[in-house]
Amino acid sequence: MSDLPRPKKREGEVLERVVDLARIVRQRSLDPFDVNVIDLFDRIRPFLRKAKDLKALRMDLLAVLGLSDIVAMQEEWIEHRSSLLYIDPVLTLVRIDSLDPVALAEILVHSMHPVTEKEQLTGPRLREATEYWLSLPDRDQRISELGADYAETGALTREDLDRMGLMKGRTFEEWISLLWGELLERAGEDGMSYWDFIRAEAYEDTVLRAYVVSHLCSLGYATIRASPLEEEVLLKPFPEKLSMKDLGTESVSIALTREGLERVYE
């Protein structure tokens, strides 16, 4: 008598395992040929004759459906392997890992044919914007991801800046005056390329010139026009400093990285 429930339990377990196996193969895109379908059908075949209640019949049916699904996946697998779109998953992962985000972006853009659609500000778009802001981690987390540490705030003296080689022995006002004069001389009224103007031999000097130019624009000595389509940024000096009320409020962000500058100056 004690042996009777055991086979029932084993049958149930086998059937459950078959159902789970089919689900896992389907969900994880595993190779369906790793499953020996004929062997599993042989193992569950006797259970059907023994099944006496609806629950057992249902489990048996689910197992048969699972195995049939694996056979269907084997067909899909062969179709995919023989299609033009087949690519080894491991090789793909290696290639993804070896390419930087810019190279990956270029690959996508070259394969892209965007759908035309009239965009408008809608409820879903506003919700998307809200979700973005809510998904941003707090500043502490972002700073720790950048590998930066908090430090006590303090003031730097001119000597400190000289020692760090940041202001090259000149005051901020001297730099403003120097670069404004140079810009007036080189650009004239038509303006000139921003990139040509800030360019210097050393990367650090280029960053310093870009920093001073940003203040030239903010303080009313020059203006900047960016055209994202042509990737042009035009810098134009004013013959006289404009007052704050005459200045526009448009903000232009220009990223300066060594790699970015190398591409610009190529």
Partner: peptide, 17 residues
């Protein structure tokens, strides 16, 4: 970088049938 993320995602999924 978002284009890069989409590119990596699509190629990964494509390689997994």
């Amino acid at each position: 970088d978002d284009l890069g993320a989409l590119s990596a995602t699509l190629t990964y999924i494509l390689s997994r049938r």
